[in-house]
Computed example of a mutant assay.
Amino acid sequence: MAAQTLPSLLYLWDKRTLYIGPLFESLKLSQGAATLVVSLDKPISFSMEGEAETIECTSLLLPAGLSVTIHTQDAVVANCNLDALGADFSGISALMQEKHGKICYNLKQYVEFQQVYKTMYVQQLDSNSAYNLLDDLLEKRFSQFYPNHAIDSRVAKVVEKIKQTADDNLSVDDLASLVNLSVPRLVQIFKKQTGVPMRRYRLWHRLFITAVKIASGGNLTEAAINAGFTDSSHFSHTFKAMFGMAPTIILLQPNGLKIVIPNP
């Protein structure tokens, strides 16, 4: 695949985000969302924090909040941040062939996933076309293999409220009152459902809001502040902590980057 001749794609949707393109350095991730990584051309590898072993694979599924290093070897990859409430992660877990600690790797249906992502990348699909393809791939095509996944409506309500008020920094007390729970109980069930604490999820969503504002023509500093970050430095620090690289690595890559957002 002539990766260098195509701009990378960053699709931003409310439910998921998806990056497709080459990655030119290893990633030290501590994600705010569960993530599916699929190589589109050559094998990649990963290593767990505190372990010397490196495992080669063509795809890997990471739970939210896990620290891991991905060695991309300049591969073209599809990096999909999955839905916050865990339905994607639960289903795709059933499609993985192998497991190391909390990481699942090597999709049984790797060829099908690879083909869908290649179609998006080579055809440089618009937001709606790409989302329909991805939604079919993740939710419908292999759903007969998926276990039942319970979603706590109280956590779903809190996630939606955080999305609506990311720049307001509502207190945990306010969020607990919203769903008639004590703070300790909300903290417990939120972490169980999403895999991350509320504060980390809020930061994750602020990264999303910042990227959407940049795609809409805003500059980085204004976009970061409007999303609730103290300044652009706070944004960059959070981005690197979660994605394992500085935002400039993504935004200023040599083959270019196209940020794709839904039509208003």
Score class of each variant (00 low, 15 high):
A2R: 08
A2W: 07
A2D: 13
A3L: 06
T5W: 04
Y11S: 08
D14P: 01
K15S: 15
R16E: 11
S26V: 06
L27D: 05
L29F: 02
T35G: 02
T35D: 03
L36C: 05
V37T: 11
D41A: 03
F46Q: 02
S47I: 04
S47R: 11
S47G: 09
T58P: 02
L62K: 03
A64I: 07
V68R: 07
T69G: 07
H71R: 10
T72P: 13
T72Y: 13
D74I: 02
V76D: 01
A78Q: 05
C80G: 02
L82N: 04
A84F: 07
A84T: 12
F89V: 01
L95G: 01
I103E: 01
K108Y: 02
Q115P: 00
Y117A: 04
D126K: 11
D126C: 03
N132F: 12
L134T: 11
L137T: 06
K140G: 09
R141V: 10
F142R: 06
N148W: 02
A150P: 00
D152Q: 07
D152V: 09
V158M: 04
E160K: 15
K163R: 14
D167R: 12
D167P: 00
L170G: 08
A176T: 10
V179Y: 00
N180A: 13
L186E: 12
V187S: 11
P197T: 01
M198T: 01
I209T: 13
K213R: 09
G217S: 09
G218A: 15
G218I: 00
G218F: 15
N226R: 05
A227Q: 09
T230S: 00
T230Q: 01
S233F: 15
S236R: 15
H237T: 12
K240Q: 10
F243V: 09
M245R: 12
L251I: 06
V260F: 06
P262H: 03
P264V: 14
